[in-house]
């Protein structure tokens, strides 16, 4: 199955450098300090942030700053086949650790010594690029919780087909063994927060792939920026 058709379109009708539709809601979960719901195409993610509160893991608590703990779970009905997933399998744990590391570098942790911030992420529907969508959802939830960050992190998963970069890939495109580059940047600029590579890519194609990922990440940043601004102007209207 070809990712790009002979006319240069993808299976869902997008162009190679086109991201999926993003729609998001903030403050969806009243119990949490901050929460967000994001749809990127058919990938749907709910994220809630709790804290900063006293560290439950004393060994991890440090006087220099707070720790970030991420719990990632996937709904039974998230994928094509119904599947009961055990909590804490290897893949999910690896993703959760990556999220923790990414956000520990972005949150101004020095403000909250000996504290902990909990992030709970639930994948409601999975249609590719789940790590990137989780990061985008967490960014929104953290901003909603009012936790000081150096910027808003946005993330995108891209691929390269015959040297042509294809951005924000869906589950159908992920099925092929094509290279997958997940790139998270800060505030849509050049600062890279996280980068992850799956499968292999030819070195000649890498720079084009990176450039396309940067561009896609900053367009996602524009979407999140607009969403946050809209949410804030609404809360202002209530005040």
């Amino acid at each position: 199955m070809n990712v790009l058709s002979e006319h240069g379109f993808r299976a869902d009708g997008r162009r190679p450098e086109q991201i999926r539709n993003i729609s998001c809601k903030l403050s969806v979960c009243p119990e949490a300090d901050g929460s967000a719901y994001i749809e990127q195409g058919n990938t749907r993610i709910m994220c809630a942030v709790y804290g900063p509160h006293e560290a439950t893991n004393r060994a991890k608590a440090s006087e220099e700053g707070c720790s970030v703990s991420v719990q990632l779970s996937t709904a039974v009905f998230a994928t094509l086949e119904r599947k009961n997933r055990r909590r804490g399998d290897r893949k999910t744990t690896a993703l959760a650790r990556m999220l923790e590391k990414a956000f520990e570098s972005v949150i101004v942790t020095s403000l909250f010594p000996r504290a902990q911030i909990d992030i709970c992420c639930e994948i409601i529907q999975e249609d590719g690029s789940r790590l990137s969508s989780c990061i985008n959802a967490c960014s929104l939830a953290l901003a909603d919780a009012g936790i000081p960050m150096r910027g808003v992190v946005t993330c995108v998963t891209c691929s390269s087909v015959d040297g042509r970069p294809v951005v924000d890939i869906s589950a159908r495109e992920e099925m092929d063994t094509i290279p997958r580059l997940t790139l998270a940047t800060l505030s849509g600029h050049d600062e890279v927060v996280l980068v992850e590579m799956e499968n292999r890519v030819h070195m000649d194609h890498l720079s084009a792939l990176m450039a396309a990922s940067h561009a896609a990440s900053s367009s996602i940043h524009q979407c999140l920026h607009a969403a946050l601004q809209q949410h804030l102007s609404q809360t202002r209207a209530i005040l």
Binding site: A143, R150, R236
Partner: peptide
């Protein structure tokens, strides 16, 4: 509060006013 200084500019670290 809610801001930081980097490379000669003052940045926001919160979403707000």
């Amino acid at each position: 509060k809610g801001t930081y200084e980097l490379h000669g500019s003052i940045y926001s670290s919160l979403a707000g006013f």
